[in-house]
Design a protein around this nucleic acid. Structure first.
Lengths: 337, 337
DNA sequence: AAAGAACTTGCAATCGTTTGCGAGTGCGTT
DNA sequence: AACGCACTCGCAAACGATTGCAAGTTCTTT
């Protein structure tokens, strides 16, 4: 197999000229005569010559590859971000290599090694929930390979990031619930050490306080996926602690909550309002459809790629924190204003 | 930037020995004395030396990269397949480069060029809906780069593929609808030139015929995404053509249909049963939850990677068509047996 | 004491491409 | 007729790593 792709040398041999001439002819170097250029180009076309990107990388010390690490590919938000990255990358002539950490710090570390060994020009990363030690990222940065973080960032590392204003978005969503008449709210939160989670939690808390509603930590439960949302809702029901409004840290948790409420025959939004976060596809499919915060993943990916490529090509050193605007998407799981 | 990653030469220079010695020392070649080995390994560790994968690729003519082309990354099925590929690839020491065609033949062609230029060791592909001309794939195969197709395959190209038995799965799903009492069935289908679509259609048709139910082409409508399913359902309602059972080509179409039926206050499954295809996350989230065909994307990806890597490493020439088993997942959008 | 064996290590070519510099030809000018 | 200048093109080194072969040193053996 690998029956040999055509190289410059092959063309040179057939035409009985040197490889350098072929190289120059292919890129219209003025030193080369028109006849030679034509001969070369014609043969290259005929043999379907494609430059060997690997050889070019070795030579130029640039791979034109962007490495990506996400917790999981099978996730609407992350795949949307990847799609945004891919879009700009393809346009700018970069390839993307994707790895997933599966929320395991060990795998994340291995991914870093692999990408470093693959000499990617830069990396775009959303870290695992559990990671507390960020030395592996610091090591990469010290080699001169730029990293842009998105969504889940790393506290204490000075580098570029693309994020949303989680605090404000959560504040706004919570305030919407209050304005539509909810008086007894709960928050289903993600892990505390994840900045996006804690910010959303504080946005929730502060919205209550500023609206003169009592807040304490017992109004925050840990639940950040479908089944946790589902189970928690049942538990609250059994212990007679169901509120009249729930703000969840993401859409999947909200979907689990809605699913449980449906089974319990509790009417949404009449008895309980539910507000999600992310605006994934599922928010249109739940019954009732889910009010949520639009977190433009595509734009986040596109922006991250934009910042990274700029850094790669212009070798600037200043770091950027780009904030992607969010907005409330009001559907049928909440009451109208 | 790119402040220079450590190379073998750097180590050689510091230790005042040759690059060849360093190379051999690092791989425990018996020619090298233990003292030298220790010195080299120690320094390599200290400087965090990582072999330059690009140089190795150039040398060995193997990139250890698998190229992937999917219509879109933001799609539960495709991202699940990618996840399966990534899993085995990572285990076997391969990286994956992902490109998306966005259902555009032009982009698909460009992706082929890029991957070929990147000298990927092999490719895993699901083609666009529209592609009719497969010459670009033939050209790749003629360079000796193996391709494994999955799900959407290419008629007339002799190469490996990983598929499901779409005909049988559709037949079984349809028969289930019949057995649970549906007498007036419709099929919401995908494009005819897509083999998976036409096979599902024929499975539907034959299930009717074998169960002595009249079939003609007017029982097949074209609708293969959420909004088409949604709109078509409304149209059928208005023209008074709603059936008592619908088998859709995929889950998203079924979700659109369910959404419309919900708005029309038509009871599922009492008045109309709906059967989907794929078993994506959304099938658990719709209301009622969706009966569907499980199409194990993860396993498809894993198997495709398995076949491809085997082909790359063992250079076999026989082609495989692997069929991933499916099964019916019965939820609440259909009646019970 | 000389010769060969055993043990270490370095040289150079290779993978495909680019690029500075040197060299060869043919022409026109003085 | 001799010189210089365009115009073409090739040589060789470089990118990082590997590897067959040659070469160097040290030690043992006769």
């Amino acid at each position: 197999m690998k029956s040999h792709q055509v190289t410059i040398k092959d063309i040179a041999k057939i035409l009985d000229i040197s490889a350098s001439t072929v190289s120059r002819a292919l890129k219209d170097h003025p030193d080369i005569s028109i006849e030679t250029k034509n001969k070369v180009k014609e043969l290259a076309e005929k043999l379907k010559y494609k430059p060997n990107a690997i050889a070019l990388s070795l030579q130029s010390n640039k791979s034109h590859i962007i490495g990506i690490i996400v917790p999981q590919i099978v996730n609407h938000f992350f795949s949307t971000v990847i799609s945004g990255i891919e879009e700009l990358a393809a346009e700018k002539g970069y390839n993307i290599i994707i790895t997933q950490s599966n929320e395991s710090q060990k795998k994340e570390l291995a991914n870093c090694q692999t990408l470093l060994s693959g000499r990617v020009d830069g990396m775009i990363v959303s870290r695992t929930k559990n990671t507390e030690n960020f030395d592996h990222f610091r090591n990469i940065l010290s080699t001169g390979t730029p990293i842009v973080f998105f969504d889940r960032t790393c506290h204490g590392i000075k580098t570029d990031k693309v994020i949303i204003d989680d605090y404000k978005a959560a504040y706004d969503a919570t305030e919407y619930l209050i304005k539509t008449g909810c008086k007894n709210l709960l928050h289903f939160a993600g892990p505390e050490n994840l900045k996006i989670s804690s910010k959303r939690m504080w946005g929730f808390a502060d919205a209550l306080k500023r609206n003169n509603i009592f807040f304490n930590e017992e109004m925050v439960y840990y639940a950040d996926n479908f089944s946790k949302g589902y189970n928690l809702t049942f538990e609250l029901y059994k212990s007679n602690h169901l509120p009249d409004g729930i703000f969840t840290v993401n859409d999947m948790t909200a979907a689990g909550t809605l699913s449980a409420l449906n089974e319990l025959k509790i009417k949404v939004p009449d008895e309980i309002s539910v507000f999600g976060f992310t605006n994934g596809i599922i928010s249109q499919i739940t019954s009732p459809s889910l009010s949520t915060v639009e977190q433009n993943g595509y734009l986040m990916g596109y922006s991250a790629a934009e910042i990274l490529i700029n850094k790669i090509e212009n070798e600037t050193t200043d770091t950027i924190s780009k904030i992607i605007p969010t907005k409330l998407i009001i559907r049928n799981s909440t009451k109208k204003l």
